[in-house]
């Protein structure tokens, strides 16, 4: 015990020396009842001394201090039993404020203690708090905004996909109608034999109306890929465009390397700014343009799925999908 060390070092305290001896004897009886092995005991002692010896960090101490202070400051003493309170009661204190009766607004609680820990100017803390609050509010708004944005984005994606598929369907309708029209014209002109050829388009892509050129191009790309795969499978490990110097014209004709395919492939590889520009448009707009085209050219309403007999298109509710709801 430190205080005893102190005493023995100071001759003026030997009056108390007897106590130390007493104290030592008395401290022992608190030994545990169950028998401990030497190792257990040693370990326990070690643990205990570690726990005791651990010096709290400055921050921990400061926090403890502040916490103890806050606890004490927030608790009214009037609730506890207290000699002072008993004396006040004898003077007629019945709770409430002190002073004469007509003294309104006298203090009930002591003035709080506010510790200033830095050199911040007046209003800095409030300003900091205000900024912090604003930051939090802004953050909250941003999160909310993001949530809204996400929903909006998903909605738009779905809508676009839907419109895209509608557009695909419209393109097919337009291509078919265009084909039928050409056929009709051909029949009129007596060119029946060409009808069969129509299945494989021989038209250069650029001559096809841009409104549904994408569809044709897609199909042709697919067709090309299919053929390339097929060629590979056939172990004719050559690109269709491969110009074998050993083959002469006859060979080529025999192998079916016709000019048509050639142009097709070249056609596909060629840049098509018109189509690119059209595809870059919003699907809704593309669809709108196509729908208009179908109406003008074929008196066909994409939404009614009906070809009207005349330009008036009597009976069709309107231009847009909503009109047909």
């Amino acid at each position: 015990m430190p205080s005893q060390d102190l005493n023995s070092s100071n001759p003026s305290h030997d009056e108390e020396d007897g106590d130390d001896y007493m104290n030592m004897v008395i401290a022992e009886p608190s030994a545990p009842k169950e028998k401990e092995t030497y190792t257990q005991r040693r370990l326990r002692k070690q643990r205990e001394s570690e726990a005791k010896g651990r010096v709290k960090s400055k921050a921990e101490r400061a926090a403890d201090e502040a916490a103890a202070r806050e606890v004490a400051l927030s608790k009214s003493l009037l609730d506890s039993e207290n000699k002072g309170l008993a004396m006040m009661a004898k003077m007629g204190f019945k709770g409430g404020a002190l002073g004469s009766k007509n003294n309104i607004g006298a203090r009930l609680d002591p003035i709080g203690i506010n510790m200033k820990e830095d050199r911040g100017g007046i209003g800095l803390d409030t300003e900091k708090k205000r900024k912090f609050r604003e930051e939090v509010e802004k953050e909250g708004k941003r999160v909310k905004a993001e949530e809204g944005e996400y929903r909006e984005r998903v909605r738009k994606e779905r809508e676009d996909a839907r419109l895209e598929s509608l557009f695909g369907a419209a393109m097919r309708v337009a291509e078919r109608m265009d084909g039928e029209k050409e056929e009709e014209e051909a029949i009129k002109n007596g060119q029946v034999d060409e009808i069969t050829k129509r299945t494989i388009s021989t038209k250069p892509l650029k001559q096809i109306n841009v409104l549904w050129r994408g569809l044709v191009r897609q199909r042709e790309e697919k067709e090309r890929d299919r053929r390339m795969r097929y060629d590979l499978h056939q172990s004719l490990s050559r690109l269709p465009t491969y110009d074998d110097p050993d083959e002469d014209k006859e060979d080529k004709k025999a192998l079916g390397k016709d000019k048509i395919q050639h142009t097709l492939v070249e056609d596909l590889e060629e840049e098509d700014p018109e189509l690119d520009a059209f595809i870059a448009l919003d699907p809704a707009e593309r669809l709108h343009k196509l729908v208009l085209h179908l109406r003008e050219e074929y008196n066909y309403c994409f939404w009614c799925k009906f070809t009207y007999p005349d330009k008036e298109m009597d009976g069709c509710p309107g231009l847009t999908e909503e009109d047909h709801d």
Binding site: L98, G99, S100, N103, A106, R107
Partner: peptide
């Protein structure tokens, strides 16, 4: 009677 002594600003009872 310290409780009712008429001070201009009586202190808190505590």
């Amino acid at each position: 009677d310290l409780v009712h002594f008429d001070l201009m600003d009586p202190p808190a009872p505590e």
